[in-house]
Amino acid sequence: MADDKKLNRRDFIQNSMRTTLGIAVVGLGGLSMLRSKGENWVWQIDPFKCTWCGRCATSCVMTPSAVKCVNAYDLCGYCDLCTGYFKNGVKDLNTGAENLVCPTSAIVRKFIEEPYFQFDIVEKLCIGCGKCVKGCTQFGNGSFILQIRHDRCKNCNECAIARMCPSDAIKRVPANTPYMIKSDFIRK
């Protein structure tokens, strides 16, 4: 008799606690659901905030980094003397390694017509160091930008580069607009 009563009391506590916790969990879920817009998030670099510090190359959990240089061709001047391609003050415009900005020679210079050249990035070689971005943005049009490439990005819950970024340029963006490629020279 006494045992029955004790068991019943234990059952009662168990049941009421289960109900309470269940309501708490479902309530928390419901509240989050109300706020959620149903979209996933990915990480991306805002090219207007980026200060090409070089940390993208070293802070990413991937080796080489999932950040690559992208040429926004619409903004490119197709310059013969591309300041993202050639180092400052080179004597001859030849493709010797000592003349090039890119440490891994990931930029391909292709002749289009006199005097214009197209510059393409070989993603396999690019390490995302941003040296060419610096050259292009400081002295040229700024068509080279750093972007997180989503075929390589692991989409970590917290981006290791975002934590290290000194200019707060890496943010979560909705997964249906995963890139921030410049379409103009100023932010619109």
């Binding site: 903004l75 001047g77 289009i112 017509e113 943005t137 040229g140 049009n141 700024g142 410049k182 020279f185």
Partner: peptide, 16 residues
């Protein structure tokens, strides 16, 4: 250069 990019070199008009 301290301010971010601006159009210094207009996009060429290709003839080819």
């Amino acid at each position: 250069g301290l301010v971010t990019g601006q159009q210094r070199f207009p996009k060429p008009e290709f003839s080819s």
